[in-house]
């Protein structure tokens, strides 16, 4: 799925960096700038909620747009992501054009 996501976004002109899980993402983001963070919820070591909370807690990505892209569709999890500081919520399966439009919208 990550490979498909990369392909869909690079075809739309975005430069994409990917991490295996929340901890790897945090480590990479400590030394790099991005315009948008896209995260899943179910990830090993540090899930999407934890990643959002850690990014919002301070540092260079405190105000960065964060989109959640997930198969989860429950209102409870969506509310939790919103409470943690997510910018938007996208339920898979993803539509490449809608996803790209959302990234452009929150990144400008």
């Amino acid at each position: 799925m990550r490979a498909l996501l990369r392909h869909a976004l690079t075809e739309q002109g975005f430069a994409v960096e990917q991490a295996d899980d929340g901890v790897s993402a945090l480590e990479w983001l400590e030394g790099n700038d991005v315009d948008v963070v896209i995260t899943d919820i179910n990830m090993p070591r540090l899930d999407g909620f934890g990643l959002i909370e850690r990014l919002r807690a301070g540092g260079r990505h405190r105000d960065r747009p964060i989109l959640v892209l997930t198969t989860e569709s429950s209102d409870e999890k969506k509310a939790r992501a919103r409470s943690a500081g997510a910018t938007g919520w996208i339920v898979k399966p993803f539509d490449a054009e809608k996803l790209s439009a959302a990234v452009r919208r929150v990144a400008h």
């Binding site: 799925m1 498909l4 869909a8 997930t70 198969t71 989860e72 399966p93 993803f94 539509d95 490449a96």
Partner: peptide, 23 residues
């Protein structure tokens, strides 16, 4: 899908349904 940039990754594909099952 052969081209994710043009095709929606939807319920027809294992790459989506495997993730749904695991989750």
């Amino acid at each position: 899908p052969q081209n994710a940039g043009k095709t929606t990754v939807d319920e027809n594909y294992g790459v989506y349904l495997m993730e749904v099952l695991v989750n």
